[in-house]
């Protein structure tokens, strides 16, 4: 049904995308390695600080209803500028005791399943979802594998790709691999100016591909993991500015830009029909890194969406 409308909307949204940068970073560029180090600073603001600064009210919710409650995955319902939203985010911890409790932000399957439970709950009550990513990756351990960390992440990717409410994601620190992507499939993706997003850590890249773990700095610079790189490659929609010294020096500044971005995006995304929202998201996901010649790009997807019509 909405095929013609969809094309119009895509063009319109693409145009809007280009203007989502709230503030052009005006400082001199940091190297990728400097960003990696800033993104991992222990005093870098985390999801809890941003919730405090952005939400009028917030109520955390616990548990995946299957196994337990993973403290490394925070979830709950907040009010932003009079609008109810579900917020999900990785918690790294701000002191040693907390770091250990949350495995430095590395979630077990129950963390991803809690995120999914809250996302599906949000969908039932038509609440937009905001996610904050800050994790080196999913937790690599016995319990994690026994309880199916692969299945948990995979199911989140599948479900989030067609969830019928807007999903806006901010990578606020480290965006590491599948563990980050597990709460990172959505309509809008932003990186904080000094945040990073990559398929593997620079240390991992250096030791596997360069056969020398001490070359992490060199690896970071060729991996194209900074906000600027990712914007150039059209992986993200925009960059959220930080003050020169980094977000830890002025969390209010960055939080106010995140809040403005959320309000602006929700005004836009909430005005779309659910079908249009999901169609746009699926086309976006389908296009990333496409190596099919432009002529036939997304052709089969378009036909599948036509076949499904309103059933999407």
């Amino acid at each position: 049904m909405a095929d013609i409308k969809y094309e119009d909307m895509r063009e319109k949204l693409d145009r809007i995308d280009k203007y989502t940068n709230i503030e052009e970073p005006c400082k001199k560029d940091k190297t990728a390695w400097e960003c990696v180090q800033l993104s991992r600073r222990v005093n870098r603001p985390g999801v809890k600080e941003y919730i405090d600064l952005i939400c009028d009210e917030f109520m955390p919710l616990s548990g995946d209803r299957l196994f337990g409650d993973d403290h490394s995955m925070l979830g709950g319902i907040g009010m932003i500028d009079g609008r109810a939203v579900t917020i999900i985010g990785n918690v790294k911890g701000s002191n040693l005791k907390e770091n250990i409790d949350v495995n430095y932000g590395m979630s077990h399957p129950e963390g991803y399943r809690k995120a999914l439970r809250l996302a599906k709950q949000a969908e039932r009550f038509n609440r937009p979802i905001i996610t904050f990513i800050d994790t080196p990756g999913a937790f690599p351990g016995l319990g994690s594998e026994e309880r199916g960390i692969g299945e948990a992440i995979a199911t989140n990717l599948k479900e989030l790709s067609t969830i019928s409410v807007p999903v806006i994601t901010f990578i606020i620190g480290e965006g590491g691999s599948g563990g980050a992507l597990g709460i990172g499939v959505g309509d809008k993706l932003y990186l904080l100016e000094n945040a990073v997003y990559s398929v593997i850590t620079p240390e991992g890249f250096a030791s596997i591909l360069m056969k020398d773990p001490s070359k992490a700095e060199e690896a970071a610079n060729i991996m194209k993991m900074t906000a600027k790189d990712l914007l150039d490659m059209e992986i993200i929609h925009g960059i959220i500015a930080e003050v020169e010294e980094g977000a830890q020096a002025d969390p209010e500044f960055t939080a106010s830009l995140i809040k403005k971005t959320i309000i602006k995006d929700l005004d836009n995304l909430c005005s779309k029909s659910k079908e249009a929202l999901v169609r746009y998201r699926l086309n976006k996901i389908r296009s990333i890194g496409s190596t099919v010649e432009t002529k036939s790009k997304n052709q089969i997807l378009t036909k599948v969406l036509q076949k499904l019509g309103d059933e999407i």
Partner: peptide
């Protein structure tokens, strides 16, 4: 993941999983 393709290789996880969602719906 194919590390030489960096973030593009990571995005294939989302891409393939979204296709499974469409298979489920069909």
């Amino acid at each position: 993941a194919r590390m030489q393709e960096g973030i593009f290789s990571l995005m294939q996880m989302a891409k393939t999983s979204s296709a499974v969602s469409l298979m489920n719906k069909c």
